[in-house]
Write a protein that binds this DNA or RNA. Structure first.
Lengths: 349, 349
DNA sequence: TTGTAGGCGTTATCAA
DNA sequence: TTGATAACGCCTACAA
């Protein structure tokens, strides 16, 4: 079943090689190789013959053999927690868009955020002789993970993560994004701003918290640590923390939901408590999503281009892989964020 | 940058091979091979020595060489339109969950629904000597695509698609899912049921339309073809068609939104027209999603397990790859659907 | 411009 | 049980 016999005319049971093509075309194997690799200096007529033979026999070069000879797999590994997270799917699409046209195979692998699995995946891509890797690990400070990365003998790029190894890192400007969101709320008179986010031990989380703090400090407002819930990106976490925050004697008047998967949890919690936004609490989310656009009222969002993140990471990685690393390669590349104003915030003034 | 020197102690500039390990362990290269492949019959003490040498040198076998020798890549290709579609991300995760533990690498590739790109991707996986493929092509009746699939000399499984080549196909039971949804609406007194969906030329679309038709016929209701909008899965399409349908002199009293990406378009159209559900129109969507659960009122949905789809496809494919194909392999495997009742439908009686 | 032949790093067969 | 050695299919000097 589903095991065709191919379109091989002289259907011998032996797998086709360049040698067969050479024989069929009446040339040598070297010429076949030159033709398929576009090595200049082959007589057009000969190339013609070879291509005809290739087409007629239906031969495809054995990539394993090519890889072995050239010791390059033309394969890039991309490790993250879970492809079902829309963010990673978008990054994957972006990376694929730059890698595929250049002949590289992008291979993604989900770690479920498990550090041991991350180690195993890094090892996997080493065995598979990937030409490079894009890494979005769970914790930037996990010793064994960082050690494994440090031992990597291939180029890599950290995506939305940063380790102290001097490696190139690509990420969105969450600092500015969060600061801008907070400033917008503060301008509307909010003084108690809650934040729910995850990614502890990553630059993403640090940048967001710092953005909020800097905005508060600049406005001379007091920071209430109890309004910061920083332990997870899951919807369930958002659900519980929203209930806790809104149940406080002195609840926040505005809430920052920073992380794609959090918003459904926040909304569900508000619904079950009979609270509504922006009346009971002003709401800003990150990243932008269908939900933010569709909900009534529509939800103000910190938006950034996740596909660009993947694209830029891939480009930067290829620069390293192909040895184009311009002397002053920036160790950090930032993708801008944008505050999309909608109807989920209420002025308190 | 990001180019470690590895943990290789005797840091020679030459890449490690099994030969180096053999020398270091004082055995022959054949023994090294036997150890890493767990070939029975190696003296434990010798295996010990070899493993120590491997660890000390930090050697990892060259997969390209292994692939070439064994002519197996332990790689499975998965082609679909776009990884950003949540459905494909879920299928990918499901497939990865069965393939990874068994040592197979899952490689996904987005075709953007472009038949030419599908052809190129099929060719790509042939060159890369994939051990098998999971295919979710755009049109089941595209001659060149089907020809390419027919010429495949490797096992494959069609996922949510079906071609007349006798190949195994895995899919959700959209027929029953849609029929059940329609019956539920009919029981509530609806007689004019609109449907928006895409995937023309795929079994998915045929099954859905047939499900609706059978339910209508069984109830002795007349089918209005003008209420069927079957051309695309995009949100924009849903947006336009919803407006058209609801703007009809005699609009549908219920609407089936069959396709993950359609719902936001439907909702946006209703909002802009100042219509609301279930008052102005009853609504059922497929697949279930955060949006369906979070919107107020919550939206009744045809749910199915997309990860299971990926899992089952991968298992069925491995059965073929590893030659386990039980004589009576079912050519079609169906994943059940379930109607999740919520608050988006209004009885007309 | 084209042919020849060595070697890439494994696995697997055959002896020892 | 272990060692030597011939493939696997291609690329690439080097020769012709």
């Amino acid at each position: 079943m589903a095991r065709g016999k191919g379109s091989d005319p002289n259907n011998s049971s032996h797998r086709l090689t360049a040698q067969d093509v050479a024989r069929h075309a009446g040339v040598s194997i070297g010429t076949v190789s030159r033709v398929i690799n576009n090595v200049p200096g082959v007589t057009p007529a000969v190339a013609q013959k070879v291509n005809a033979a290739i087409a007629e026999l239906g031969w495809v070069p054995n990539v394993a053999a090519q890889n072995m000879r050239t010791s390059s797999s033309r394969m890039i590994g991309f490790i993250f927690s879970d492809i079902r997270n829309a963010l990673y799917a978008q990054m994957t699409k972006g990376a694929e868009e730059v890698l595929a046209p250049r002949g590289y195979l992008l291979v993604t692998a989900s770690s479920d955020g498990n550090p041991e699995r991350e180690l195993a995946l890094i090892d996997l891509f080493k065995r598979r002789r990937a030409d490079g890797m894009i890494l979005t690990i769970e914790q930037e400070n996990n010793v064994s993970t960082v050690a494994a990365i440090g031992n990597l003998s291939m180029p890599y790029v950290m995506l939305e993560r940063e380790v102290s190894l001097g490696s190139t890192s690509v990420g969105a400007d969450h600092y500015r994004g969060t600061k801008q969101a907070a400033e917008y709320l503060i301008r509307q008179g909010h003084q108690r701003i809650g934040i729910i986010t995850g990614g502890q031990g990553t630059r993403v989380a640090r940048d967001r918290v710092r953005g909020l703090e800097d905005a508060m400090n600049a406005a001379g407002l007091e920071i209430d640590r109890n309004l910061m819930r920083l332990e997870s990106f899951s919807a369930e976490y958002a659900y519980r923390q929203t209930q806790e925050l809104m149940g406080l004697a002195n609840p926040p008047t505005a809430l920052l939901s920073m992380g794609v998967r959090l918003l459904p949890g926040v909304l569900e919690a508000l619904q079950i408590m009979g609270k509504s936004y922006p009346e009971d609490v002003s709401l800003i989310c990150s990243n932008d999503s269908d939900i933010a656009r569709i909900m009534m009222p529509k939800i103000t969002a910190v938006r950034y281009d996740a596909m660009a993140l993947g694209r830029v990471a891939a480009e930067s990685l290829l620069d390293q892989v192909e040895g184009r690393t311009t002397s002053g390669t920036p160790p950090r590349i930032e993708i801008p964020t944008e505050l999309v104003l909608r109807d989920s915030c209420r002025p308190l003034l």
